[in-house]
């Protein structure tokens, strides 16, 4: 009896917690969403707060595409983020595997170095990189290449460390068994470990993707022509000296959410479905 009551209390608590988080997340997003459907005058009206657009308009979205090249921003951001995520994921698999499965000289130093890179002020990293890049004469012709390199490098340390922790959760015995069966280390990694690791790989992919997706400062420095801008740079340019294009800004923010939202929906089941679903038979 007592147990049953307790279980019910836990279930109720869980519902409350879940509801709280939903509200916590939804309220600001709701606010942005309805703002994106309001005309400018209603948005900046200081006398009355409207919780639903009095005049419903799609003008902000139209403006975004017709006047502000949002299509370009979207394309640039998607290409850059996907390529960043691909490169980071591949490099992290090797790095993470090495850190998880080997004991070797300089490992601690290496990990500390990874952490130190996270502490260097961004602008100090951008300047020499940009200078080198300018010397190669690539700024005008391939701004995204430089940005891509920057994104890959800045996302690597965290992703390698994360990948390592995913590898560590997979029992070595699994790999050993394969190697005993005559597989080479690489083959066992590819055939046995990686499939089991898939959720971890997906997670790292998402981390790197979002890292590139939301980056602002390097985007501003590396891209100059409006057609080369990424979404954050394009949105930031909606802040003028004297006014903010609130409607277009919020519309842009909402649209920027779509690709990530779709990605979340597709991949979330891998990330949380259990990293080691079929692999724990030790």
């Amino acid at each position: 009896m007592g147990n049953k009551g307790k279980r019910r209390a836990v279930a109720a608590l869980r519902v409350i917690i879940l509801a709280f988080f939903l509200l916590f997340v939804i309220l600001p997003i709701y606010w942005m969403a309805i703002t994106s459907f309001k005309p400018h005058a209603e948005i900046i009206n200081t006398q009355q707060v409207t919780y639903f657009p009095k005049t419903f308009t799609l003008e902000n979205y139209k403006e975004l595409f017709e006047i502000f090249n949002y299509g370009d921003f979207l394309k640039n951001s998607i290409i850059l983020s996907v390529l960043t995520a691909v490169a980071v994921t591949i490099l992290s698999v090797f790095g993470g595997y090495a850190l998880a499965r080997y004991r070797f000289r300089g490992k601690t130093a290496m990990l500390l170095f990874f952490l130190v890179t996270q502490m260097v002020p961004g602008i100090l990293v951008i300047i020499p990189l940009y200078t080198a890049y300018a010397k190669m004469g690539l700024i005008a012709d391939a701004p995204h290449l430089g940005l891509w390199i920057f994104y890959v490098i800045t996302n690597l340390p965290f992703c390698v460390i994360t990948m390592r922790s995913f590898f560590e959760r997979i029992p070595y015995s699994l790999e050993e068994a394969a190697m005993v069966d005559g597989c080479s280390r690489m083959k066992s990694l590819r055939k046995i470990v990686l499939p089991v690791m898939f959720p971890g790989i997906v997670a790292v992919f998402v981390f790197a993707f979002i890292g590139a997706w939301n980056e602002l400062i390097a985007g501003i420095i590396f891209t100059s022509e409006p057609s080369a801008w990424t979404i954050p740079v394009g949105l930031k340019s909606l802040i003028g000296k004297n006014n903010v294009k609130w409607g277009a800004m919020m519309a842009g923010g909402m649209l920027a959410l779509l690709p990530t939202a779709i990605m979340f929906m597709v991949v979330q089941k891998y990330v949380v479905e259990g990293l080691t679903a079929g692999s724990v038979k030790e």
Binding site: P28, I29, T46, N214, L235, A261, V272
Partner: peptide, 29 residues
């Protein structure tokens, strides 16, 4: 899950602007 994880996908400065404006003392929501 797909919904609750969304805040992470926002650009920081857009979130910052939204908070600044929502917390406006005179007419903030």
């Amino acid at each position: 899950q797909s919904v609750v994880f969304l805040p992470w996908a926002f650009s920081a400065f857009v979130v910052g602007l939204m908070f600044r404006w929502s917390f406006n003392g005179e007419y903030g929501v």
